[in-house]
Simulated assay, not measured.
Amino acid sequence: MTDKVTARRRIEEVEERIRLAVEAADIGTFDVDLVNNVTTTSKRFNEIFGFNGPATQAQYVSVVHPDDLHIRRKAYKASTENKDNKLVYEVRVIHPDQSIRWIKLQGKLYYDDNGTAVRILGTLLDVTQVKRLERQKDDFISIASHELKTPITSLKASLQLLDRMKENPAQGVFPKLIDQSTRSMQKISALVDKLLNVGRANDPQMQLNKTTFLIADILTNCCSHIRMANKYKLNLAGDESVKVNADEHAIDQVVINLVNNAVKYAPDSVNIDMMIERLDGMAKVSIKDYGPGIPADKQPHLFERYYQADVSGFQNAGLGLGLYISAEIIKRHEGAMGVESTIGEGSTFWFTLPLA
């Protein structure tokens, strides 16, 4: 009896470890008795499908996206015809709130002595986030290729013309081609810098060279390229005596990105207001434009990597990295970053930094 009790306890311990591992991995499990047509599922399995409790096989199938039903049928057909015991497929399911989730089902078929499938054991994963990241990666590669192609093509054309004219340079054309080449190189460098900054922003060992300075100095001296164009007015208001202890170069990068976005997304907004405040022991800096505004459903995603918002029909260009990098910089300074926007009235991007 002692041996039996010991063996049973060991089995229970193994089962408990497996259960804990499954729960930690956020995996749903299922057991289908094909003979009696009975399906047993875990709580997480039901949740991934969008049910509060157990459902019938027909109900599980009913929430699979109509465009993906053929994928499920094909997977079941392949698993039974090939007798390889494996059942694997990825489909979309529609939850009661009409949200779309991606699921990945993996199972193993068991057969009786006559070769008839009698049971399926398997697991279920919600892979929505994985699919979202894959889409963002593909979008990023597409956007980066497009963004780099234009300046590289322009640079190549300028260099080809310069090469043809090197023996007999035309005085009027030569400087223009050199200027064009320089501008193209600057665009390429800016794009490459953004890519490098993503890696730096994610690096937990990123060093901040903090000094104490007036935040007003950065706002006053930033964005010389916009001030020189004399098209937009950068208006500074608020408490210009506010000092912070931060990495001046990094904060300057954040401010430039926010002002550039104001110009990009609100090209008809001549005034760009910059405000400095003391708020709850922090310095708060706000950059406001008077453009078309950003839809409420897009605002929570603006600081995600590679996210690009098509604001009020204005098709933007870029890698979708600027706000993500800026938010990471502010986070490293133990500050916060956010946005307030109303359609037709404009947008205000803000960030906070600890006071010096």
Results as ranks from 00 to 15, higher is better:
254 V>H: 02
134 E>Y: 11
116 T>H: 11
12 E>A: 08
63 V>C: 02
100 I>D: 09
184 S>T: 06
354 P>Y: 07
159 L>G: 04
356 A>C: 06
181 S>P: 02
57 Q>L: 11
208 L>H: 06
183 R>W: 05
95 H>T: 03
79 S>H: 01
137 K>P: 06
160 Q>W: 09
342 T>M: 09
8 R>A: 12
206 M>T: 10
62 S>M: 05
45 F>S: 00
143 I>P: 03
206 M>C: 10
168 N>S: 13
230 N>L: 15
56 T>S: 15
24 A>E: 08
160 Q>P: 02
242 V>G: 06
113 D>W: 04
194 K>M: 09
304 E>L: 08
252 D>T: 14
82 N>K: 09
233 K>Y: 11
272 I>D: 00
269 S>H: 11
194 K>E: 11
114 N>R: 15
80 T>Y: 07
83 K>Q: 08
324 Y>D: 00
153 T>E: 15
113 D>P: 01
64 V>C: 05
219 L>W: 00
82 N>R: 09
176 K>T: 14
164 R>F: 09
169 P>A: 08
310 D>K: 14
263 V>P: 01
299 Q>R: 10
147 E>V: 07
156 K>R: 13
38 V>R: 11
207 Q>V: 14
325 I>W: 01
122 G>A: 06
112 D>W: 00
36 N>H: 10
323 L>A: 02
179 D>S: 13
194 K>Y: 02
180 Q>D: 11
161 L>F: 06
348 T>Q: 12
144 A>N: 06
15 E>R: 10
101 R>T: 07
159 L>I: 10
243 K>G: 06
311 V>A: 01
34 L>S: 00
170 A>T: 13
109 L>A: 02
25 A>S: 10
118 V>Y: 03
232 Y>L: 09
277 E>M: 13
252 D>C: 10
148 L>H: 04
192 V>C: 10
82 N>M: 07
132 R>M: 12
75 A>F: 02
162 L>E: 02
82 N>F: 04
189 S>R: 12
38 V>G: 03
257 N>G: 14
7 A>Q: 12
188 I>L: 08
81 E>Q: 09
108 K>I: 04
133 L>E: 15
174 F>H: 14
107 G>V: 01
67 D>M: 08
19 R>M: 04
264 K>E: 13
187 K>I: 09
14 V>C: 10
122 G>Q: 04
61 V>I: 13
89 Y>C: 04
